[in-house]
Computed example of a mutant assay.
Amino acid sequence: MNDLADRARRLRSLPPSCGPVRLIAVDGHAGSGKSTFANRLAASLGGAPVLHLDDVASHEELFAWTDRLRDQVLGPLSRGEPALYAPYDWAARRFGPPRVLGPAPVMLIEGVGAGRTAVRPFLAALLWIDGDSEASWERGRHRDGPGLSEFWDGWTAAEQRHFADDPSYPFADVVIRRMPTGYMWLEGCHPTAVASRILTDSEA
């Protein structure tokens, strides 16, 4: 098992991948614990910005948000400019006022599909949260309550289609496994990646 502070130090040592930013993706099934892990890792990084893909997706575009992410976030950051994106309000079913996301040495992008094909060229590392899809979805349903059961029915079908067409797991540098206390970092399915060797090497 590895300490998040040590992992954070190693993330900072990776080469910039999106302009001056080391962009780290946290992907995995809905309900697998991505947001909790990303927030804890961000804290270990001294308050690194976290872009939640829930802010980029919408009811009508659960996974068809690639162009919006590229135009509003990835493009500007890759040029060393602040990103300006309008987060989606899932209750009001509309996009809200724009938010500024300035370039930072390390930034996290968290959500289902964060490691998709269109995003990977901008990533310094792709982290996959380990977890069975059915068990993860059940945790998500329990978390959100029966009022969102219909939404979850549509979501799980859409997620299955997404990962069938554009899987992230085979390209993961690191697989993150939740433990009773902390997390275990395991070499992912993309062993040729430099990030994989840096982040899972047992030597400091």
Rank of each mutant, 00 (worst) to 15 (best):
A157K: 13
P16Y: 09
R9T: 13
L126Q: 04
A38H: 11
L11T: 01
S133W: 12
H52Q: 12
A25H: 06
Y169T: 08
L108I: 09
L62M: 15
A172H: 06
S35T: 15
D130T: 02
L77Q: 02
P15E: 12
D89K: 01
R7K: 11
D132Q: 10
D54Y: 08
A91R: 09
R178H: 14
A91E: 12
F37T: 03
A83H: 04
H52N: 10
R10D: 13
P49D: 10
G31L: 09
R141W: 09
A42E: 05
L53V: 01
L123G: 08
C189K: 10
G80H: 07
P191L: 01
S17W: 11
P87L: 02
R79W: 08
R94E: 14
A172D: 09
V112Q: 00
F163C: 07
E203F: 13
R79V: 02
A86P: 00
G46C: 09
R22V: 08
L148K: 13
V119I: 15
P170L: 12
A124R: 01
L77F: 10
W152M: 05
G182T: 12
V50S: 07
L186D: 10
T36R: 10
P103S: 12
P82N: 03
R120T: 06
V50T: 10
T192M: 05
P146E: 03
P167H: 05
D27H: 04
A86N: 12
L51N: 02
A204S: 14
D165I: 09
D165G: 12
D3K: 06
E187Y: 07
A124P: 01
R99N: 10
V26D: 00
P82M: 04
P87Q: 02
W152K: 03
N2T: 15
A92S: 05
T156A: 13
T66W: 05
M1I: 14
V174D: 03
P98C: 10
R40K: 14
W90G: 01
P105A: 07
R70A: 14
I176K: 01
G33F: 10
P146G: 06
R94N: 03
R12Y: 03
A193V: 04
L148H: 13
E138P: 05
A92I: 00
S17L: 08
R177I: 10
V56L: 13
I109M: 14
P121E: 06
V174G: 05
E159Y: 09
D71P: 04
E60N: 08
P97D: 12
V26L: 02
I198Y: 03
I129N: 02
P191W: 04
H142T: 14
L126R: 00
V175L: 15
V119R: 00
R40C: 13
G102H: 12
I24V: 15
W90T: 00
R161A: 15
I24M: 02
